[in-house]
Every structure is written in structure tokens, then in C-alpha cells.
Design a binder for these strands. Structure first.
Length: 419
RNA sequence: GUGGGCGUAGCUCAGCCUGGUUAGAGCGUCAGGUUGUGGCCCUGAAGGCCGGGGGUUCAAGUCCCCUCGCUCACCCCA
């Protein structure tokens, strides 16, 4: 047992998975940058107050925050998500609207870890501030949808709902609480506790004994103001216009208190774990104001990197790949020629590898094979004496000798043809 | 935070119920299989305080307790 191991809920992302993560973010960046979103990089910790705006009835704020007092006496917290930070940055820098940004990076929540849920977990996401157009909601949703499709995922379901405007949500919450209280004896003990804290969340219960009561509960749709109803209708029409399949799920209650109006969640049906939501988002039209800014509409989504990658595994798409070399330089004369040649080959843009230490020809060839190089360049005593190198295609083709100064061009040519 | 399952080689696991000589397998790694050449095949080697601590016993990987970690479910969420 080593003296030190990763702390619970954290882990090392080793090769080749780490490069899969990078590729994941690359695919995401291409999708959203085509739509005009620009990257933003936020601090990983901020003033605790920024995150308290997520809602003091949420577990994220009440018990999962990694907060501490720094040496200057500031009460700060590791970010549990990035939307609040984006809004804080918006208020701090007052950029022109619409402000369209994307981000990627780790967040922190003090939870008990299980598959697809870690204390340090990565998300990619976008946020748009300053626009209250339902067709923007459609665009935002379509970008997430397109990203999943670009990864190769086919079994991702889109669930949409609306929480109405601020007044609708409050009136609904009151009506729902009243209904649930009248059926309190039928609810599970856990849900009774949830009811006292945050009635909307009872709708999320997966416990069998709650199913009947939840099924009969009033729907948010009955409480929509005319404007909220029209907005939601426009979103649904827009999705249909783009040919994006979705289901309206009036029990979809997002976890954070700032959500208003349009909410949505992407669920992988290929995953049989407890955590099947691979991404989600919605409108948060009051959040900027809560953080001290002018009233500003906002919408965005976050996609969980781990869970989405788990879904990719379940569907056997977007695999992790070891990098293959283009060329491997074998040198049994001490290594100086391989050192120089591989530098030249790299300078020509190739991925060139070589063996370290005085290994036998056979050993070096084995390593060359494992590197999956297209071609091996071999320097033995014989070649060294005559100023040449043997160039050997690794697919079984004929090998031949070239003057040292012609090796780079020859190899570049062979690799280009092989690709 | 609550409950169940599991911690044996780098990885996947057998052995534990029915304690008993130097703890095994497959894969991986490394080295060989005659003159300077990979893949397939063959041979060999390295690699384990059997998660940690305590207890029972003549004897513990195996039984008991504690602890740490992982995992699944709940809670919650991405």
C-alpha cells in the first residue's frame, strides 16, 4: 500500500483516458465555437456568497460545499458549478450582450462518491446572458443535442419542462406543498423531510411508496402565466422545427433554485446506473440580479464529462485511443544518431519515437512494433560506417537503405502515403 | 450522512465456507529462442508485509473485532 493515495471522490485520469478527455473537450469546442460561443476560464474558487445564490434549500449549498477561510480571512469555496461564476463575471465586467461563452473544467462537491459521481468532477457547458428569446432556448438545447450526436451517442433522450416565471414557480410550489402535506402520511419518511425543505424536489423521488402521490400531484403547467405558457410553446415548436425529438416531463425539477422558465435534461437510456442524467440546464433569469447586476435573462447547460463518457462506453462510441507513432528510430550504435534523427523527424512534423538505453536490436524492434509506428529507421554499426540508414516499413514491405540526409524526406513520404 | 457487497502481483481474478509445508493463474512487463530485425509461437525471470491494526489459535490470506478504501443503492446531482 503506498503512503499516499487519491482522496475519496478524486482520481487520476491516466493515459490513454486523459487524451480522450482532451478530445472530448475539442469536439465540444468545435460545436459551440461554430455557433459563436467563446471560451471563458473562471477561478476554481470564489467568494462563498457567489455560490450561496444557488439556493439555500439545496444540498449543493447546505452540505456539499468545499468552503474554507483563507489566510486573508476571506470565506471562499471551491466552485460546485460554473453558472454562478459566469454571472458574477458578467456583473463584474459588464460585457456587451448577448454574451455567449463556453467553459470546461472541474467542479467540486462534497458528496459520497459512486460511479459517475465524484467530488471533483468535470463539466463542459455554455451560458448566454442578455437574451430572452425562446428560440435562443432552442438553439442552446440544439447545441447540446448536436454535441451528443457528434460523439456518436444515439441513446440520449431530451426531457424539457418549464418552471414558469418567478411568480408561477412560487405559486406552484405553494400549491404543491399544500397538496403534498395533505397526503403526507402516504409519503416515505425521506420525502416528508424533503417536503419541509424544498417541496419541488419531492417530485424527483424514485421511491416506490411515493410514486402514487407524485403521479397525482398538480402539474406546473396549470400555473403558467400567459407569457410563460407562450414561451414554452415557442420552445417546443422550435425544437420540432429542427427535428429534435423531446418529451415534455412536467416532473422535471432541476436541482438548483435559480432555474426559471425553460428547463431541460439529457438522459442516457444506455446507462443502467442510478445517475443517468448526462447533462442539463435551463433559464435562470433572476440570477444576475441576485448577484448585484441589472435584471438580465440567462440560459445555459452543463454536461458531465464522466457520465457522458460512461454513456459512450455503454454505446461503444468515442473510444479512448493510444497514440500511434509515425516513425521509430532504432539505433544499436549508442543512440546519438537516433537522438539527432528523431529530432529532425519531429521537426518535419512527424511523431517520432526511439528506445532509451543500450537495448538489443531485437528489443528495440519489439518496442518499435508496440509504438505502432508506420516505419522503422534502423541504424546499426554497418549503416553508421557507411553513412546510411535502413528504412523498414512495419507492415511487412521491403526495407531499403538511404543516405542519412535523405532519410527524413523518405520517411515523410512513406508516412504520408500510409495515411 | 444511511444500508448492502468487496479489498490477494501493474491489470482481471482463483484460493477463504471445511485455518496447516516456499500464496497461484491469465494478461501485461523484462530477457532469451546462435550470425544485426517487430508481430505468431516457445522458454525463463522479475513483481505480493493477501488494504491497515488488534484478537483467537501450536498455526491466520483463510475465523472474530476495529479501521481505512473501493463499489452499489438511498439522499442529491452532472
Amino acid at each position: 500500500m503506498p503512503s499516499f493515495q487519491t482522496t475519496p471522490g478524486t482520481r487520476d485520469i491516466l493515459p490513454p483516458v486523459a487524451s480522450r478527455w482532451r478530445a472530448f473537450v475539442d469536439v465540444f469546442a468545435v460545436v459551440v465555437e461554430r455557433a459563436g460561443y467563446e471560451q471563458i476560464v473562471l477561478p476554481m474558487f470564489e467568494d462563498l456568497g457567489v455560490f450561496q445564490r444557488l439556493g439555500d434549500a439545496t444540498d449543493v449549498v447546505t452540505k456539499e460545499m468545499y468552503d474554507f477561510v483563507d489566510k486573508g480571512g476571506r470565506h471562499v469555496a471551491l466552485r460546485p458549478e460554473q453558472t454562478a461564476g459566469v454571472c458574477r463575471a458578467f456583473v463584474q465586467h459588464h460585457p456587451n450582450v448577448p454574451w455567449k461563452v463556453w467553459y470546461a473544467g472541474p467542479n467540486f462537491r462534497y458528496e459520497k462518491a459512486q460511479q459517475g459521481r465524484y467530488r471533483q468532477f468535470d463539466q463542459v457547458g455554455i451560458e448566454v446572458l442578455g437574451v430572452d428569446d425562446p428560440l435562443l432556448d432552442v438553439e442552446v438545447i440544439s447545441l447540446a443535442h448536436g454535441f451528443y450526436r457528434d460523439l456518436g451517442l444515439r441513446n440520449v433522450e431530451l426531457h424539457v419542462n418549464s418552471l414558469g416565471d418567478t411568480g408561477d414557480r412560487a405559486r406552484y410550489a405553494a400549491a404543491l406543498a399544500a397538496y403534498l402535506r395533505s397526503h403526507e402520511v402516504e409519503l416515505s419518511e425521506e420525502s416528508r423531510a424533503t417536503l419541509a425543505r424544498n417541496p419541488l424536489r419531492v417530485l424527483d423521488s424514485k421511491r416506490a411508496e411515493d410514486r402514487e402521490v407524485v403521479a397525482q400531484a398538480p402539474s406546473i403547467a396549470e400555473f403558467f402565466s400567459p407569457a410563460a405558457g407562450a414561451h414554452f410553446a415557442a420552445v417546443q415548436e422550435g425544437l420540432a422545427l429542427l427535428g429534435i425529438d423531446f418529451v415534455v416531463n412536467d416532473r422535471l425539477v432541476r436541482g438548483l433554485d435559480y432555474y426559471r422558465s425553460t428547463t431541460f435534461e439529457f438522459v442516457s437510456t444506455a446507462l443502467d446506473a442510478a445517475q443517468t442524467a448526462v447533462g442539463g440546464g435551463g433559464r435562470y433569469d433572476g440570477l444576475v440580479e441576485d448577484l448585484g447586476g441589472e435584471p438580465t435573462p440567462g440560459i445555459g447547460f452543463a454536461i458531465g464529462v464522466d457520465r457522458t463518457l460512461l454513456a459512450c462506453d455503454a454505446e461503444s462510441v468515442f473510444p479512448a485511443l493510444d497514440g500511434a507513432a509515425d516513425v521509430f528510430v532504432v539505433d544499436t550504435t549508442g543512440g546519438r544518431t537516433a537522438l539527432r534523427l528523431s529530432a529532425q523527424l519531429r521537426g518535419a512534423g512527424l511523431r517520432a519515437e526511439r528506445a532509451y538505453g543500450a537495448k538489443s536490436m531485437k528489443s528495440q524492434m519489439k518496442t518499435a512494433n508496440k509504438s505502432r509506428a508506420v516505419v522503422a529507421v534502423i541504424i546499426g554499426d554497418d549503416e553508421l560506417a557507411r553513412g546510411v540508414a535502413t528504412v523498414r516499413p512495419m507492415n511487412g514491405g521491403e526495407q531499403s537503405e538511404y543516405p542519412l540526409e535523405a532519410v527524413v524526406a523518405t520517411v515523410v513520404d512513406i508516412v504520408k502515403k500510409a495515411k
